[in-house]
Design a binder for these strands. Structure first.
Lengths: 215, 215
DNA sequence: TTATAAAGTTAGATTAATCTAACAAATTTA
DNA sequence: TAAATTTGTTAGATTAATCTAACTTTATAA
């Protein structure tokens, strides 16, 4: 598989997580390319039985395609954790590097990372790490955006891995495991007044709330 | 720079180490591609001022090109040492992985590796590691092929990084620092009878002797 | 339910990196 | 030094991944 094909599979997998069907348009937006490029690539991927594709219809990953995507995701997430826990980088800087290292072809390399980390189940953003067969560990967590006022939660994951967003969380002292108490939910813009780690009061926009996973 | 351009620069640098002038033919052989491909790529590299090139003449790296090549070599060699000393891989398996990781674009990543290793001067094969400015540390060592019978040397480097060759050295118990005593040099094929680590007697072909650096 | 807009496809061009076939220059050898 | 060999170049084709322009299909709205 080429690097480009791997990136399409990753995008396809990410898009398959939501409710909406996967369309040519959404893939194009996700990858920042034009629709005709996507049309020709999905024909290629369909030829390799990695996706199910019929003109004008929604696109779906096949089992084979999903497996491939999850194996790349495994390499990405193991790398992120390795960069953070072994190499001491911050959670806001690991994504871009892992984006490159995930394409390295070497079972030996990634198995050794897996071993050194003790076969971890979650990456530095709280995302589950698929096992060597592409199976995801069970995990429950829900976005803060659906939570009620007056309750207290624990941060277990973030859905936006962008350095800017994570650096913002750093300035608030928020890390995985931090407590988040919802003080009030504002109906007009669905923003929330929150108390972080029992000391920092601030306001989270709805977008921010959607990107924070809690239990 | 593209991945392909980086690989040409590495090949160019390697070829520039020997006596012979760099020719289109030698580059083609080194990279396992055809001559016309090389012709078009050297015109490209010359356009970027990375090499000096005139039709039918020998090719030379410019200072800019050499610097670039050495920075890639730095990433390659730092990675090899990291894979061996931090991740516990064998010196026979690090080359192929480093060949891929050397193209990662991240100063942060490689500077962290450099730090973790304590700014090392040599890689697992005894090759010198260029500094962040592309400067090579001074080092003296010569191939065993030029050595005399009756003298004792210390292995400080290997010039062939192929897994097969290094595994062969492993079976002989040879590592960097091992002693090699030259018992006899045979004129007919320039092979040598040697005593390794004061205990193992064997015969080295001329090719093997050329690939072992000693002091 | 037809008109308009949005999404998708086709056709054809472009760029990087490769190739083969044919030709030209340089080098070696007789 | 002329012929033969090796090396190098040019021309033109190929593949993967991208693009724009033009056209078609599907979905939305009047």
């Amino acid at each position: 598989m080429t690097l480009t094909e791997e990136n399409y599979l990753k995008a396809l997998h990410r898009l398959s997580q939501g409710e909406e069907p996967i369309t040519v348009k959404r893939i194009a937006v996700q990858l920042g390319i034009k629709m005709p490029t996507v049309t020709s690539m999905v024909r290629n991927l369909a030829g390799k039985k990695l996706i199910k594709y019929e003109k004008y219809k929604a696109i779906e990953l096949t089992d084979k395609g999903r497996r491939q995507a999850l194996l790349i995701l495994r390499k990405h997430r193991l790398t992120e954790l390795f960069l953070k826990d072994v190499m001491g980088l911050g959670w806001e800087e690991v994504h871009d590097i892992a984006e490159q290292i995930e394409h390295i072809q070497s079972d030996r390399f990634f198995n050794r990372i897996d071993e050194m980390l003790g076969h971890p189940k979650f990456d530095p953003h709280g995302e589950p790490i698929p096992d060597a067969n592409g199976k995801l560990p069970f995990f429950k967590a829900f976005p803060l955006s659906g939570c009620e006022a007056g309750k207290k939660y624990k941060l277990t994951g973030v859905l936006d891995h962008d350095a800017g967003f994570l650096t913002y969380l750093n300035t608030l002292g928020l890390t995985l495991g931090s407590s988040i108490e919802v003080m009030e939910v504002h109906g007009f813009d669905r923003s929330m007044d929150v108390l972080l780690n029992e000391k920092v009061r601030t306001v989270f926009s709805f977008i921010v709330c959607q990107h924070l996973l809690v239990v």
